[in-house]
Design a protein around this nucleic acid. Structure first.
Lengths: 185, 185
DNA sequence: GTCTATAAGATGATAGAC
DNA sequence: GTCTATCATCTTATAGAC
């Protein structure tokens, strides 16, 4: 792996751990084992590097989700698999957490990949729910787009609860709760 | 209002807007209209001031929630009122957002009030759901603690989706989705 | 491509006058 | 109580040698 890739991956890690405001170029360089000159040779600055890192994390997130959505079973089975998938709950979501970063949300260029990722995730989930509704798993009156937003919100909010408690249990409870509601339909 | 209170309230605003890592003592002083000496006279430093600010915001959050929970109507009515309450959605949750702050989560003293607030909120919501279950609004098999976690997660995650989109609609969708599930029981 | 040197400004606090 | 220095360190680069 080249230095450029090392820099991007180190930035991905640090953005996940500390956010944009909490991540300095120096910290990125140290983790990547690269000098200042090297970093500024490959990237114009912190913002451009962060953009490359966020895009790569976004692609990884959508690919991982799609793996569950394309899996076997009914629509509800696949959503259950997605929600129950093994996760590093206490680390939170590498994309969702960026919504709490003032410099990301304030900058249209930096916010764009975050917005696009969560919008696409909801859209993909809506498709799966549409399949389930067509198959009679869900009532014909189900607002699948709203339900998709609910499911993604449970994930994102579950991370918040788990990080507050410094324990994964609240996340698991939140997931169990929404799955119970879904199963009762 | 005294200088000390001004400092706390300015810190509350800045923690909400920019988080702990993104908030400097200087910014606090400027917003409060106080000098350095004044701030360090009233508080030992940034951490102590943040602690006072977080505690005050936590009290406000729990009081606001309880206002809805003690309101009129069935359990589901009151939960609906709580979720549909007017909120500054794009600002997010002043307490929940702190879970994305590495220096808050890493410090037991700073994390404690965040943990306690969300834990109490879930506990209070569990009580309301227990009433609803006892009244026959919810099935006797309902795991009220899990459902409470789900509802709080929908709120916290709804904020994440809204901030990513820079629009309140995803929040409203997420809330609608969980209320539809709840109503169908 | 990578390195070291340099720098203007911010950060988080301390010291001491008033 | 509040003010104005002062300070060591960090931040986010730029410059130029190698």
């Amino acid at each position: 792996m080249g230095t450029r890739d090392q820099l991007i991956d180190s930035t991905r890690e640090l953005l996940w751990e500390r956010g944009y405001v909490g991540t300095s170029p120096k910290a990125i360089q140290q983790r990547a084992g690269a000098g200042q000159g090297s970093m500024y040779h490959h990237f114009a600055g912190k913002k451009e590097l962060a953009l490359a890192a966020v895009r790569r994390s976004a692609d990884a997130l959508l690919a991982a989700a799609d793996e569950q959505f394309r899996g076997p079973g009914t629509a509800v089975d696949r959503i259950t698999a997605y929600l129950r998938r093994e996760r590093e709950v206490l680390k939170g979501c590498p994309i969702g957490r960026l919504t709490q970063d003032p410099d990301i949300v304030a900058d249209p260029v930096l916010r764009a990949p975050v917005d696009e990722t969560l919008t696409r995730l909801r859209a993909r989930l809506t498709e799966v729910l549409d399949e389930g509704r067509a198959a009679g798993e869900l009532p014909g009156t189900t607002d699948t787009a709203a339900l998709a937003a609910t499911i993604v919100a449970v994930l994102q909010g579950g991370y918040v609860l788990a990080r507050a408690a410094n324990a994964p249990e609240p996340f698991d409870q939140a997931v169990s709760g929404v799955l119970a509601l879904l199963a009762a339909r």
